[in-house]
Amino acid sequence: MMNRHKLILDKLAREKHVEVLELSKELRTSAVTIRKDLRLLEEKGLLFRTHGGASLENPYVNDRHVHEKEKVQTEEKKAIAAAAAKLVDTAESIIIASGTTVLAFARAIQPKEKLIVITSALNVAMELLNHPNIEILQLGGYTRHSSSSVTGHYAEMILEETSCNKLFIGVDGIDLDFGLTTTDITEAHLNQKMIRSAQEVIVLADATKFGKKGFGKICELDQVDHIITDKSIAPGLVKKLRDQGIVVTLA
Protein backbone atom coordinates (compact mmCIF):
# COMPACT_ATOMS: atom_id res chain seq x y z
CA MET A 1 0.00 0.00 0.00
CA MET A 2 2.79 2.44 0.91
CA ASN A 3 4.40 1.96 -2.50
CA ARG A 4 1.06 2.61 -4.19
CA HIS A 5 0.60 5.77 -2.15
CA LYS A 6 4.07 6.96 -3.17
CA LEU A 7 3.27 6.35 -6.84
CA ILE A 8 0.03 8.32 -6.50
CA LEU A 9 1.79 11.25 -4.81
CA ASP A 10 4.63 11.21 -7.36
CA LYS A 11 2.14 11.39 -10.22
CA LEU A 12 0.23 14.14 -8.44
CA ALA A 13 3.44 16.16 -7.98
CA ARG A 14 4.11 15.93 -11.72
CA GLU A 15 0.60 16.56 -13.04
CA LYS A 16 -1.07 18.57 -10.21
CA HIS A 17 -4.27 16.53 -10.69
CA VAL A 18 -4.96 12.80 -10.94
CA GLU A 19 -8.05 10.79 -11.86
CA VAL A 20 -9.30 7.61 -10.23
CA LEU A 21 -9.81 5.67 -13.48
CA GLU A 22 -6.33 6.54 -14.77
CA LEU A 23 -4.71 5.49 -11.50
CA SER A 24 -6.74 2.29 -11.47
CA LYS A 25 -5.39 1.33 -14.91
CA GLU A 26 -1.79 2.37 -14.22
CA LEU A 27 -1.58 0.67 -10.82
CA ARG A 28 -3.67 -2.34 -11.89
CA THR A 29 -6.06 -2.15 -8.99
CA SER A 30 -9.75 -1.40 -8.57
CA ALA A 31 -11.27 2.06 -8.56
CA VAL A 32 -12.66 1.30 -5.09
CA THR A 33 -9.12 0.72 -3.78
CA ILE A 34 -7.86 3.93 -5.38
CA ARG A 35 -10.68 5.92 -3.78
CA LYS A 36 -9.74 4.46 -0.38
CA ASP A 37 -6.11 5.42 -1.02
CA LEU A 38 -7.10 8.97 -1.87
CA ARG A 39 -9.28 9.23 1.23
CA LEU A 40 -6.39 8.09 3.44
CA LEU A 41 -3.97 10.50 1.78
CA GLU A 42 -6.46 13.35 2.21
CA GLU A 43 -6.81 12.53 5.92
CA LYS A 44 -3.03 12.91 6.18
CA GLY A 45 -3.28 16.33 4.52
CA LEU A 46 -1.32 15.25 1.44
CA LEU A 47 -3.99 15.99 -1.18
CA PHE A 48 -7.56 17.16 -1.76
CA ARG A 49 -10.11 14.79 -3.21
CA THR A 50 -12.12 16.07 -6.17
CA HIS A 51 -14.92 14.63 -8.27
CA GLY A 52 -13.33 11.58 -9.88
CA GLY A 53 -9.82 12.25 -8.67
CA ALA A 54 -7.55 14.37 -6.48
CA SER A 55 -5.62 17.63 -6.54
CA LEU A 56 -2.59 19.07 -4.76
CA GLU A 57 -4.50 22.24 -3.94
CA ASN A 58 -7.94 22.91 -2.51
CA PRO A 59 -10.19 22.88 -5.60
CA TYR A 60 -12.76 25.27 -4.14
CA VAL A 61 -12.04 28.97 -4.56
CA ASN A 62 -13.46 31.95 -2.68
CA ASP A 63 -14.25 35.41 -3.96
CA ARG A 64 -11.28 37.81 -3.72
CA HIS A 65 -11.02 41.50 -4.47
CA VAL A 66 -9.72 42.45 -7.90
CA HIS A 67 -6.80 44.39 -6.33
CA GLU A 68 -5.66 41.22 -4.54
CA LYS A 69 -5.93 39.11 -7.70
CA GLU A 70 -3.91 41.60 -9.72
CA LYS A 71 -0.85 40.88 -7.57
CA VAL A 72 -0.66 37.15 -8.41
CA GLN A 73 0.53 35.39 -11.59
CA THR A 74 1.25 38.82 -13.11
CA GLU A 75 3.82 37.70 -15.69
CA GLU A 76 1.67 34.76 -16.76
CA LYS A 77 -1.32 37.07 -17.21
CA LYS A 78 0.71 39.48 -19.33
CA ALA A 79 1.86 36.64 -21.60
CA ILE A 80 -1.69 35.30 -21.92
CA ALA A 81 -2.96 38.81 -22.66
CA ALA A 82 -0.37 39.35 -25.40
CA ALA A 83 -1.31 36.06 -27.07
CA ALA A 84 -5.02 36.91 -26.85
CA ALA A 85 -4.50 40.38 -28.34
CA LYS A 86 -3.19 38.74 -31.53
CA LEU A 87 -6.63 37.16 -32.03
CA VAL A 88 -8.40 40.52 -32.28
CA ASP A 89 -9.06 41.37 -35.92
CA THR A 90 -9.99 44.75 -37.33
CA ALA A 91 -13.64 45.69 -37.78
CA GLU A 92 -14.74 43.12 -35.19
CA SER A 93 -17.16 43.30 -32.31
CA ILE A 94 -16.00 41.49 -29.17
CA ILE A 95 -17.18 40.91 -25.61
CA ILE A 96 -14.74 41.25 -22.74
CA ALA A 97 -15.89 39.79 -19.42
CA SER A 98 -14.47 40.70 -16.00
CA GLY A 99 -11.31 39.65 -14.16
CA THR A 100 -7.66 40.55 -13.89
CA THR A 101 -6.52 38.43 -16.85
CA VAL A 102 -9.01 40.06 -19.22
CA LEU A 103 -7.99 43.44 -17.80
CA ALA A 104 -4.41 42.64 -18.83
CA PHE A 105 -5.83 41.67 -22.23
CA ALA A 106 -7.58 45.04 -22.53
CA ARG A 107 -4.25 46.76 -21.84
CA ALA A 108 -2.60 44.71 -24.60
CA ILE A 109 -5.10 45.57 -27.34
CA GLN A 110 -3.71 48.04 -29.89
CA PRO A 111 -6.32 48.31 -32.68
CA LYS A 112 -5.36 50.29 -35.78
CA GLU A 113 -8.93 50.37 -37.04
CA LYS A 114 -12.39 50.44 -35.48
CA LEU A 115 -13.18 47.85 -32.83
CA ILE A 116 -16.46 47.48 -30.93
CA VAL A 117 -16.15 46.19 -27.37
CA ILE A 118 -18.99 45.16 -25.07
CA THR A 119 -17.90 44.75 -21.47
CA SER A 120 -19.31 44.23 -17.99
CA ALA A 121 -16.07 45.39 -16.35
CA LEU A 122 -15.75 49.04 -15.38
CA ASN A 123 -11.95 48.83 -15.18
CA VAL A 124 -11.79 47.33 -18.69
CA ALA A 125 -13.94 50.16 -20.08
CA MET A 126 -11.76 52.78 -18.39
CA GLU A 127 -8.64 51.17 -19.83
CA LEU A 128 -10.07 51.13 -23.36
CA LEU A 129 -11.14 54.78 -23.22
CA ASN A 130 -7.52 55.61 -24.09
CA HIS A 131 -8.06 54.23 -27.61
CA PRO A 132 -10.00 56.46 -30.05
CA ASN A 133 -10.52 53.50 -32.41
CA ILE A 134 -12.44 51.49 -29.81
CA GLU A 135 -16.19 51.96 -29.45
CA ILE A 136 -17.29 50.80 -26.00
CA LEU A 137 -20.71 49.52 -24.96
CA GLN A 138 -20.64 49.41 -21.17
CA LEU A 139 -23.19 47.00 -19.74
CA GLY A 140 -25.28 48.39 -16.89
CA GLY A 141 -26.57 46.84 -13.70
CA TYR A 142 -25.58 46.18 -10.11
CA THR A 143 -21.89 46.78 -9.47
CA ARG A 144 -19.87 44.10 -7.71
CA HIS A 145 -17.22 45.85 -5.60
CA SER A 146 -14.90 42.84 -5.50
CA SER A 147 -14.69 42.48 -9.29
CA SER A 148 -15.36 46.08 -10.42
CA SER A 149 -17.99 44.73 -12.80
CA VAL A 150 -21.76 44.73 -13.27
CA THR A 151 -24.29 41.90 -13.21
CA GLY A 152 -28.04 41.56 -13.37
CA HIS A 153 -31.10 41.88 -15.56
CA TYR A 154 -30.18 45.13 -17.35
CA ALA A 155 -26.81 43.80 -18.50
CA GLU A 156 -28.44 40.57 -19.68
CA MET A 157 -31.10 42.48 -21.65
CA ILE A 158 -28.45 44.30 -23.69
CA LEU A 159 -26.64 41.05 -24.48
CA GLU A 160 -29.86 39.48 -25.75
CA GLU A 161 -29.91 42.12 -28.48
CA THR A 162 -26.28 41.73 -29.59
CA SER A 163 -24.19 39.29 -31.62
CA CYS A 164 -20.39 39.44 -31.49
CA ASN A 165 -17.46 37.73 -33.14
CA LYS A 166 -15.58 36.70 -30.01
CA LEU A 167 -15.93 36.51 -26.24
CA PHE A 168 -12.79 36.84 -24.12
CA ILE A 169 -13.60 35.52 -20.68
CA GLY A 170 -11.69 34.94 -17.45
CA VAL A 171 -12.75 32.31 -14.93
CA ASP A 172 -12.06 31.28 -11.34
CA GLY A 173 -11.97 27.57 -12.07
CA ILE A 174 -11.69 25.05 -14.90
CA ASP A 175 -12.62 21.47 -14.10
CA LEU A 176 -12.52 18.83 -16.84
CA ASP A 177 -15.77 17.29 -15.60
CA PHE A 178 -17.65 20.28 -14.18
CA GLY A 179 -16.58 22.94 -16.68
CA LEU A 180 -16.00 26.67 -16.17
CA THR A 181 -16.91 28.37 -12.89
CA THR A 182 -16.78 31.68 -11.08
CA THR A 183 -17.27 32.56 -7.42
CA ASP A 184 -20.44 34.59 -7.98
CA ILE A 185 -23.68 33.04 -9.27
CA THR A 186 -24.99 36.29 -10.81
CA GLU A 187 -21.73 36.74 -12.72
CA ALA A 188 -21.96 33.13 -13.91
CA HIS A 189 -25.44 33.82 -15.26
CA LEU A 190 -24.24 36.93 -17.10
CA ASN A 191 -21.33 34.94 -18.53
CA GLN A 192 -23.82 32.41 -19.90
CA LYS A 193 -25.59 35.23 -21.76
CA MET A 194 -22.23 36.39 -23.13
CA ILE A 195 -21.53 32.91 -24.47
CA ARG A 196 -24.88 32.89 -26.30
CA SER A 197 -24.06 36.25 -27.89
CA ALA A 198 -20.62 35.23 -29.21
CA GLN A 199 -19.61 33.13 -32.19
CA GLU A 200 -16.33 32.07 -30.54
CA VAL A 201 -15.56 31.60 -26.84
CA ILE A 202 -11.95 32.24 -25.80
CA VAL A 203 -10.97 31.55 -22.18
CA LEU A 204 -8.00 33.38 -20.67
CA ALA A 205 -6.79 31.50 -17.58
CA ASP A 206 -3.41 30.88 -16.00
CA ALA A 207 -2.49 27.32 -15.04
CA THR A 208 -3.49 27.76 -11.38
CA LYS A 209 -7.17 27.89 -12.43
CA PHE A 210 -7.21 24.27 -13.60
CA GLY A 211 -8.67 21.73 -11.21
CA LYS A 212 -10.42 24.54 -9.31
CA LYS A 213 -14.14 25.20 -8.80
CA GLY A 214 -16.09 28.32 -7.96
CA PHE A 215 -19.65 28.44 -6.64
CA GLY A 216 -21.33 29.48 -9.90
CA LYS A 217 -21.18 27.26 -12.98
CA ILE A 218 -20.73 29.11 -16.28
CA CYS A 219 -20.76 26.30 -18.84
CA GLU A 220 -19.48 22.90 -19.88
CA LEU A 221 -16.15 22.65 -21.68
CA ASP A 222 -17.88 21.72 -24.94
CA GLN A 223 -18.98 25.37 -25.25
CA VAL A 224 -15.35 26.56 -25.24
CA ASP A 225 -13.49 27.02 -28.54
CA HIS A 226 -10.07 28.20 -27.37
CA ILE A 227 -8.14 28.34 -24.09
CA ILE A 228 -5.06 30.51 -23.66
CA THR A 229 -2.99 29.60 -20.61
CA ASP A 230 0.65 29.64 -19.49
CA LYS A 231 3.35 27.06 -20.08
CA SER A 232 3.33 25.67 -16.54
CA ILE A 233 0.10 23.75 -17.19
CA ALA A 234 0.48 19.96 -16.95
CA PRO A 235 1.00 18.39 -20.41
CA GLY A 236 -1.60 15.74 -19.59
CA LEU A 237 -4.24 18.44 -19.13
CA VAL A 238 -3.37 20.03 -22.46
CA LYS A 239 -3.80 16.70 -24.23
CA LYS A 240 -7.19 16.09 -22.63
CA LEU A 241 -8.41 19.54 -23.63
CA ARG A 242 -7.19 19.14 -27.20
CA ASP A 243 -8.77 15.68 -27.37
CA GLN A 244 -12.08 17.43 -26.66
CA GLY A 245 -11.56 19.65 -29.72
CA ILE A 246 -10.49 22.76 -27.77
CA VAL A 247 -7.66 24.85 -29.22
CA VAL A 248 -5.04 25.36 -26.50
CA THR A 249 -2.43 28.12 -26.75
CA LEU A 250 0.49 28.14 -24.30
CA ALA A 251 1.77 31.66 -23.71
Rank of each mutant, 00 (worst) to 15 (best):
T182G: 03
T182L: 03
T183R: 07
D184I: 00
T186I: 02
T186A: 12
A188D: 06
A188Q: 07
L190I: 04
L190A: 10
L190C: 11
N191I: 00
N191A: 13
Q192T: 10
Q192H: 08
K193I: 02
K193Q: 11
M194C: 12
M194H: 08
M194E: 12
I195H: 08
I195Q: 10
I195D: 04
I195V: 12
R196A: 10
A198Q: 09
A198D: 09
E200Q: 13
E200D: 08
E200A: 08
V201F: 00
L204W: 01
L204G: 11
L204S: 08
A205G: 10
A205Q: 10
A205D: 07
A207C: 08
A207V: 02
T208K: 14
T208C: 06
K209V: 00
F210K: 13
F210V: 14
G211F: 05
K212N: 01
K212M: 15
K212E: 04
K213N: 09
K213Y: 02
G214S: 05
F215N: 13
F215Y: 15
G216D: 03
K217R: 15
K217I: 01
I218P: 06
C219F: 01
C219Y: 04
E220T: 10
L221A: 00
D222L: 03
Q223V: 00
V224T: 10
V224Q: 10
V224D: 03
D225F: 05
D225I: 06
D225P: 01
H226C: 09
H226E: 05
I227Y: 01
I228E: 04
I228Y: 00
I228A: 06
I228N: 10
T229R: 02
T229Q: 03
D230E: 04
D230S: 11
K231H: 14
K231S: 15
K231L: 04
I233F: 14
I233G: 14
A234I: 03
P235F: 15
G236D: 01
L237E: 09
V238C: 10
V238I: 15
K239Y: 11
K239C: 04
K239H: 11
K240S: 09
